[in-house]
Design a protein around this nucleic acid. Structure first.
Length: 505
RNA sequence: GCGGUUGUGGUCUAGUGGUUAGGACGGUAGCUUCCCAAGCUACCUACCCGGGUUCGAAUCCCGGCAACCGCACCA
């Protein structure tokens, strides 16, 4: 589906819309409606179920979303999240200072003040890369973090967190104390991150306020055991950085054991590549051929990342592979920086092992982007039929209950819905229009099961008394099910998969 | 941020200076209907915002906001 069509559909169904829409909207901000909010919750639940299911020592925490200035200074965001800019006075193009100064200062512009950058521009008579003019103005700093006044004096500064990972690092010492004092230790966060993006684009793909689900795994680099034999045979669709540099962009399917062979990628890293890949394939149900693990080269990845593969899915609405998550091996950069910044040594002594400053493996997941991807991948148009093939455990509304005839069967339908709700299954009753129209509405909202109450349900003399029709969304197949058995019949479909578990549907 | 294009009910759209701003889909209510968007009736909802030109602006001009495409950007 094209971008515009998808946006229109999602808006019409109340999945999402621009924030402050009655004022004309606000760039980079979106609100979720009823369906979107539920879908997002279910995506987060599925993510938790999968990734926290990897170990009993992986825990979810919920941090404040404001970071005091010393934290972002230590993390590097105060200096590195600042992109010095150079503006051309002639053609008004804007460039990163790093780009303009590339030739005369290949080591980059980190640590330079705007005045120093301006001085270099003048001294070397640098020209605008676009029009060749020398009218390049002195850059002014632009930080992608939102800074806020804090406290009554207004002199303290805090920043909206630009990534949720910092919260995990900040809590590591506490988590070590309240936990079992073993490595690996996982600290997950699902929360908003905020970035003052220069150009928000593509709806949910670059927003100024967005939700990240991230798992930071702290581990001893000399000892990170994983059940590698469980994943060794998995074929991973990878694009290696060195292949790209050699001009080969295509996906290769490589066995996990081969990727980890010859000591090239650590087993713990490949293991988590597989688990991430399986999450996209088996939980979010993206077709395997649309998923790839895209390795970032030394130049492309952040300097503290030792290994980085982005998890990308091919999206029709955005015309190509898009990054929906990533696996970052960040080394000891984060705990090292915060150890220095706070003066609180973050190295630990696991039982029976020498003192170690833990390394970090980060599994990061963009919740909003993935919500979009689920619409892109699973909203299906066939002729005049539109249905959203969401996995049942992700569907905002699991069950629709319909009286075949509004008057005659309405009370019975409401009673069936109430019984499902008592059993913990959310069910909504729809009485408007014909039965076909209600099925169509339900299909478009991604509701996997329709329950129809008809004459036989309520007619005491009928052999089908007390049974209803259960309709499955994708196949449109129908079967007769006793009301008494409905909840137990449906419940397994609403449990999100866990790693190593079996699939319900 | 730069350039281009665009902005009409919830959605898609007709309307190029004077229209009761039209249609389709949709929604609501009623009738009908015993299983896949049927039909009938009624109702609902719109010219992105602010200035200007004009006797008169959805329409022309300026500014703003927003979206899309390209560039740039995306620790």
């Amino acid at each position: 589906m094209k971008l515009d069509e998808l946006v229109a559909l999602l808006r019409r169904r109340g999945v999402l819309w621009p924030s402050a829409e009655i004022y004309g909207g606000t760039q980079g901000l979106y609100d979720y409606g009823p369906l979107g909010t539920r879908l997002k919750q279910r995506i987060e639940d599925a993510w938790q179920s999968w990734f926290l299911g990897l170990s009993e020592d992986y825990h979810l925490i919920q941090p404040a979303e404001l970071l005091p200035e010393p934290v972002v200074r230590a993390s590097g965001h105060l200096e590195n999240f600042t992109d010095p800019e150079v503006t051309c006075g002639h053609c008004h193009a804007v460039f990163r200072a790093e780009t303009v100064l590339e030739k005369v200062r290949p080591e980059g512009v980190d640590g330079l003040s705007p005045a120093e950058i301006g001085e270099i521009v003048t001294r070397h008579q640098l020209r605008c890369p676009s029009c060749g003019s020398t009218e390049l103005t002195v850059p002014r700093p632009f930080n992608l973090m939102f800074g806020l006044d804090f406290g009554v004096t207004g002199r303290e500064r805090v920043y909206l967190q630009p990534e949720t990972a910092q919260a995990s690092y900040l809590s590591f010492a506490r988590m070590w104390d309240v936990g079992r004092r073993t490595l690996p230790l996982g600290v997950a966060v699902i929360a908003h991150a905020y970035r003052n993006e220069i150009a928000p684009r593509q709806v949910l793909f670059r927003m100024r306020a967005f939700t990240q689900a991230e798992l930071q795994i702290f581990f001893d680099p000399t000892d990170f055991p994983v059940p590698f034999s469980d994943v060794a045979d998995e074929l991973l669709p990878v694009v290696r950085a060195r292949d790209r540099l050699a001009g080969r962009e295509e996906v290769r399917r490589v066995a996990a054991r081969e990727l980890a062979g010859a000591g090239e990628l650590p087993e713990f890293y490949v293991y988590h590549m597989v688990q991430s890949y399986r999450f996209y394939r088996d939980v979010l149900r993206h077709p395997a051929e649309r998923i790839r693990l895209f390795e970032k080269s030394d130049q492309e990845r952040a300097f503290y990342n030792r290994i980085q593969f982005d998890l990308e899915v091919q999206l029709e609405s955005l015309g190509g592979f898009k990054e929906l998550g990533a696996i970052h091996y960040r080394g000891d950069y984060d705990l090292g920086r915060h150890g220095q910044g706070s003066g609180h040594d973050l190295s630990v002594v696991p039982t029976g092992r020498p003192r170690v400053l833990p390394h970090v493996l980060e599994l990061t997941f963009g919740v909003d982007r993935n919500l979009w991807a689920l619409a892109d991948a699973h909203l299906t148009v066939e002729g005049d039929r539109t249905y959203w093939k969401l996995p049942s455990y992700l569907s905002p509304v699991p069950v629709g209950v319909f009286p075949l005839l509004k008057k005659e069967h309405g009370p019975a339908a409401r009673s069936v819905a109430e019984r499902l709700r008592s059993a913990g299954i959310r069910a909504v009753v729809d009485t408007a229009g014909s039965i076909g129209k209600r099925y169509a509405r339900m299909d478009e909202a991604g509701t996997p099961f329709g329950v129809t109450v008809d004459g036989e349900t309520v007619e005491a003399a009928s052999p089908n008394h007390g049974t209803v029709t259960l309709r499955e969304r994708d196949s449109r197949a129908q079967e007769r099910v006793p009301i008494d058995r409905l909840a137990e019949r449906l419940r397994p479909f609403f449990v999100p998969p866990r790693p190593g578990g079996t699939r319900a549907d």
